[in-house]
Amino acid sequence: MIVTRPQDFLDAVATRAIAADLPATAQAAFLISPIDFSLAAESASDNRYMDLGDAPDPLRALAEHAELARRLAEDVPVTTFPGDPLAPDGVFPNNAFATAPGRLIVGRMRHAVRRRETSRADIRAWFERLLGREVVDLSGAALVAELTGSLVIDRARGIGYCGLGERCDMAGARAMHEAFGLRLTYCFELAEGEYHTNVVLAILAGRVALIAESGFRDSADARAIASLYPDQALWLGASQKAAFAANAICLAGNRVWMSERAARALSEPQRTWLGEQGFSIGSTPLEQIEKAGGSLRCCVAEIF
């Protein structure tokens, strides 16, 4: 079921009584390392978090990424694929690849510079031949669907929150709803200038929602989502959103990962509140990688 209005979402949740009875966190994760890391002008055309005048240091970005992989492996097994020099900002695989049980889903990227990533034979073969996954390939379809960048999923409930904009259209939302086998997808418009939902919303192990209300075109959409997590929604301000505080991920049920910059943006009461909900905060420096307009969550492709 796909809904597009706040009241329809509230009604669907009430009438369908969707239980949190599915695995809430991933079994493993994979990353793609930065090689000759640089900023792609095409990607910057609709990403307000990028500044083409602030070029990253490729070697420092590589070191940041290696440390990220090491730290995340404290929670789940992590595989790192080598980067592609022809994909200069191709360090955010969650937009191009995602999984559901038994499936690898390949997205349809808006920009040609990012479509190079979805054609990678090594990643496809790793899932298809080694893990025996069915490949659901959206990369050649007449739609835009940047997977778990555009679609934030409450895996425990099988509910998708899909932000519509230049990186995802309604046809893409429908295709992802089917590909992930979701029970319910709620589609809404992002605020002007926002490119991905996972910069304004995170669902942590099906228990807590991090919500940056300023990233939604209509605040009623943000409030409708929050209603599913009574007393377990952490509201983030615009400056915290800009620091990527919503670009967070939970790989184990007791820890939320975000960049050091994002963690610093949280207030002490917010940090205490997360602790009360059962989440410690894991953070790692991503200063150079964040210059490409994404942060820690964008770097992580989950394996369910």
Rank of each mutant, 00 (worst) to 15 (best):
A44L: 09
A29E: 04
A44D: 13
P56I: 13
M50R: 14
R48P: 13
I32P: 03
A40G: 10
D54N: 10
E42W: 02
D46C: 11
I32M: 11
R60W: 00
I35L: 13
G53T: 07
D46R: 15
I35W: 01
I32C: 04
L39T: 04
P34D: 06
N47F: 13
I35G: 00
E42A: 14
L59C: 02
E42D: 15
I35T: 15
L59V: 02
M50F: 12
R60M: 02
N47T: 14
D54H: 10
I32E: 02
D46I: 07
D57E: 07
A44K: 09
L39Q: 05
P58M: 13
D36M: 02
G53M: 05
D51C: 10
S43Q: 10
G53Y: 07
A40L: 04
L59E: 01
D51M: 03
G53I: 06
L31C: 06
L52K: 07
D51L: 07
Q27R: 15
E42K: 08
G53C: 09
I35A: 06
S43H: 09
L59K: 00
L52R: 12
R60P: 00
R60I: 02
A28H: 08
S45Y: 03
S38P: 03
A55C: 09
S38N: 10
S33N: 02
A28T: 06
A40Q: 09
E42T: 12
P34R: 04
R60E: 00
R48L: 13
A55D: 03
A44M: 07
D54T: 08
I35Y: 00
